[in-house]
Structures are given as C-alpha cells and as structure tokens.
C-alpha cells in the first residue's frame, strides 16, 4: 500500500457510510481497487444468499466517487477530506448475483471536465473477467477542484 493509498483510506474512514459498509481501498501504483469484504448484513436475498442490489449500487457509486478523488489526490502529507463530487445519476447493470464473498471494484474516469465527470465502474468477485455488476455514473465536480 502506497502512502497515497493510506491517505485515501484515512479519508474514507471519515465517511460514516463507507465505515457502515466496511469498504476499504487497495492501491498498486496508479491503480485503485475498492474492496467490499463480505458481511452477513449486506445480504438482500437470503435464499441464494446474495448481496442486496442496493449495496451493489452503493459499492459502484462509492468506487466512482473515490476514483474521482484519487485522480486529483496530491502526493505528500495527509489531507483533510476534500469536497466530494456529487452524484447526478447512476445506471447499474446487474449481471449475476453478488455471492457471499468479498467483492472488488474499479472505476475508470471516462471523461472529467471542469464541471461534469462520467465514470464507468466494474465489480467482480473471484474472477476479474466475470463481472457481477457494472455501472455508469455522472458526477458534478465540487467548486474547489474545477
């Protein structure tokens, strides 16, 4: 884990909802992977059992927001939590059930302008090439980083 990655995780810990989900981040160079460790309270379909579709949407949205922050995060000292991009919309494509195991997601910033950003996110479990969900979201960038 890089120093920049540690800063990111410290910032993420200050967002109560990320703490609620148990989300954390792993970094390798410029690559940022969000990790959602399995927890029974994330289940929305006890029959399979499978992750709640809303949790999957939240996982993708959060990965996109943190992906945008990560792109603009400076090297160096720990920083206060910056102003967060605001979600305009999110479209989630549910490809297969999220099973009772750890989930991973990566965001790709498709376009980032001064005001708007478009981000694509992919989520998987055991196999990076077998996605269980993908999504696209549009975000309004905060004033400070424009």
């Amino acid at each position: 884990m890089s120093h920049r990655g540690e800063i990111l995780n410290q910032m993420a810990q200050r967002i109560p909802y990320l703490h609620f989900l148990g989300l954390r981040f792993e970094t390798a160079g410029e690559r940022l992977t969000a990790v959602l460790p399995f927890s029974p309270m994330l289940i929305g379909n006890p029959a399979i059992p499978a992750l709640h579709g809303g949790v999957t949407a939240a996982f993708l949205e959060t990965t996109a927001i943190v992906g945008l922050l990560w792109t603009g995060l400076p090297e160096g000292e720990a920083v206060a939590l910056p102003a967060l991009p605001k979600t305009i919309d999110l479209t989630v494509d549910y490809l297969r059930p999220g099973l009772s195991r750890d989930s991973f997601a990566e965001a790709r910033v498709v376009r980032q302008g001064r005001r708007y950003a478009s981000v694509h996110v992919e989520a998987w479990q055991d196999d990076r090439s077998r996605l269980f969900a993908q999504g696209t979201g549009h975000f309004l960038m905060p004033e400070g980083v424009r």
Binding site: P16, Y17, A57
Partner: peptide, 20 residues
Amino acid sequence: LIGDPATGVIAGGAVSTLMD
C-alpha cells in the same frame, strides 16, 4: 448513513438501497 460529513447528508448509496 452519512455520505458527506461536511453536510450530514445521507449517502446516495443508502437512498439507492431504500429505492431498490
């Protein structure tokens, strides 16, 4: 469930789960 500690606004993800 707060998504932005600066404002105390509930995270979009929690609202998504409610709507789902």
